[in-house]
Design a protein around this nucleic acid. Structure first.
Lengths: 360, 360
DNA sequence: TTGTATGCGTTATCAC
DNA sequence: GTGATAACGCATACAA
């Protein structure tokens, strides 16, 4: 700034220039003191710090970000925000951001028709973006990456060169289905919408494979329910139990749907697991507390979010990033027909957990 | 360079200068075309748009924000993220942001020791900030506002001149407690931590007032549980029911704590509501689905988030903003001792709802 | 150790 | 209608 050019006073917040003038140094020195980017004489430093303190100056993040050409933030896109699953994923994502000193921007498209526009807006304000499941189309995700914006996908397979982080589904679903079949149940129905998410799609495929290998007909083994919450599960359950062809086991897309199905069963006068077995997925906190306690599959939800963030930061740093498949584990409780554990409701013994890792 | 900011290199992204050169115009004209801030000849406009298209240029939000001295974002600070309450508040906050074309930044302090630092960081990257409950101290909140950063507080009374948005607690809690007393229950215990949140503090005060007016001793009427989730409620419930002085009614800080208390009661061999009545707060989706269905208080959680955001935008626009107390309503179901409603589990008749508005 | 000068990408204010 | 140019607040290469 040229000499004699005095900035107008007023409500304007102080800038480096104000601090520099106040401490009788150059703006470069002020910057050096604040960033510690170069040695500064102790006496000078103290003058600067005093000025900073007196003017209550904080460097403008807007300007810093502009100079650094970096937002210091990453974003994550969900279809929705309800339910414990998203909350956990967000928590993991956010924790990683905090550790890195970055901000987390969260966007839920909620099935809005302008979802693509919203995601684009978000892309303009972050250094990297994570997209969950089928929130937006593949071609759109690929487009983000083509704009040189670091991107990862979550809870779904990789898209082209865009890395993915997800939990193992297919093999574990097959394992769980086999366990249900081992209880002697043949009339197995999977409640969920394979089209709504890649996760559910893989779980259904795993279940179907187990049924086929056991020689069970699968033509009526899929019941879609239109959503992932308790309400949808309840409604699907009522339809299922009212249809006459009473299923012997209902395997659900997630724990919340399972909770709804359990309610529907009880309203329909069915006992669990005697009349009908029920299983969930996710091992949310309520799963162990329900009665009967819910047999389900534990997946590391926080870890999913944390890994997505970590992968983004690695990409931003120019590192090479590979897709990851996180481990899931079987959590056998009572709702599948197993006996209550001696430890009490919701208690588990290690022997009841089966881990599985690999490509879903 | 500040935390979280690392320079991304690679092929430089195009700027106005590139587009201007490509279209053989000045950068001013490019800006005019894009912003529509001044008339441009049709032929010129088309040349510019063609160049924009070809270079796949998007104006840098970083630069725009810098020039406009505006982040185009507001932030919200929570103590935590788990549970349906926060999810709903976030959803409302986020919806309002989307409608306004702004971004929502979400921070959960999780009881970290550097919470104040984190909130300060957030304050540096938003145009306004909403703080929930006692996430940070009053003096800190006041300090934010003193820095000319628009601020509102959520789920608590106003702090100085900082407006608040909250739901009615005290009178409704008293009403609910009276209802429980009307069932003939005298040994009433409130489970929750008044110190953890202003909301809970007011609910406890309302309950206590009702008890005192009914001539009930309140010296053992408070049972703290250390948190707002099912686990804490369960643990508190076990202690409560194992202590010998069996309560006749347990009024909980929220629905999740109530759910835990219900589990604890059942494990302790107590029937609800015959042996012990239980009430919650929030009317989350599971409240109507539980058996027995949970008597609780409905509060507009999404609305709380939405109003907080709307108030921030109003403050940013320089408008005058007044605190607001949102209406809550009593939701009588079975867990308090009332009979099941004919409509089925979770169904409500209008007659079962009592609304209340006013200063809590 | 400190100061000067330049660039970051946009919008806005002048001239023409 | 259009173009040259000055901010915006900071970081930094280069001088001194």
């Amino acid at each position: 700034m040229p000499d004699g050019m005095t900035k107008r006073d007023g409500g304007r917040r102080p800038s480096v220039y104000d601090v520099a003038r106040h401490a009788d140094v150059s703006i470069a020195t002020v910057s050096r003191v604040l960033r510690g980017s170069a040695p500064v004489a102790t006496s000078t430093r103290q003058r600067v710090l005093a000025a900073v303190d007196e003017l209550r100056w904080r460097p403008s993040r807007l300007a810093r970000a502009f100079v650094a050409q970096s937002h210091g933030a990453i974003g994550i896109v969900f279809p929705d925000l309800g339910g414990p699953y998203y909350a956990q994923v967000i928590a993991g994502f956010e924790r990683e951001c905090v550790e890195r000193g970055a901000a987390a921007l969260i966007l839920a498209t909620h099935g809005r028709d302008n979802a693509a526009q919203l995601v684009m807006d978000l892309a303009d304000r972050v250094d990297g973006i994570a997209v969950m499941g089928r929130t937006v189309g593949d071609e759109f995700v690929a487009d983000l990456s083509r704009r040189d914006l670091p991107a990862v996908v979550l809870a779904r397979p990789p898209v082209g060169t865009i890395p993915a982080v997800r939990a193992s589904n297919l093999a574990m679903a097959e394992t769980l289905a086999r366990h249900v079949l081992d209880h002697g149940r043949r009339g197995v129905v999977f409640v969920g919408d394979p089209d709504l998410s890649p996760d559910v799609s893989e779980r259904w495929r795993g279940v179907r494979r187990a049924l086929r290998r056991a020689g069970v007909d699968t033509t009526t083994a899929l019941k879609s329910c239109g959503g992932f919450d308790v309400e949808h599960g309840y409604k699907a359950g009522l339809e299922l139990f009212g249809a006459g062809n009473d299923p012997e086991a209902v395997m659900c897309a997630n724990d919340e749907v399972a909770t709804g199905v359990v309610s529907a069963a009880e309203v329909s006068g069915l006992r669990i697991p005697d009349d009908v077995a029920v299983t969930g997925w996710d091992d949310t906190t309520t799963a162990s507390r329900q009665r009967p306690s819910l047999t389900t599959v534990q997946q590391p939800m926080r870890e999913l979010g944390a890994r997505a963030a970590a992968m983004l930061f690695a990409l931003i740093d120019g590192a090479d990033v590979k897709s990851a498949v996180l481990r899931t584990s079987l959590v056998i409780r009572e709702s599948c027909g197993c006996r209550p554990q001696p430890g009490g409701v919701g208690q588990l013994r290690a022997a009841n957990r089966t881990q599985h890792q690999g490509r879903p």
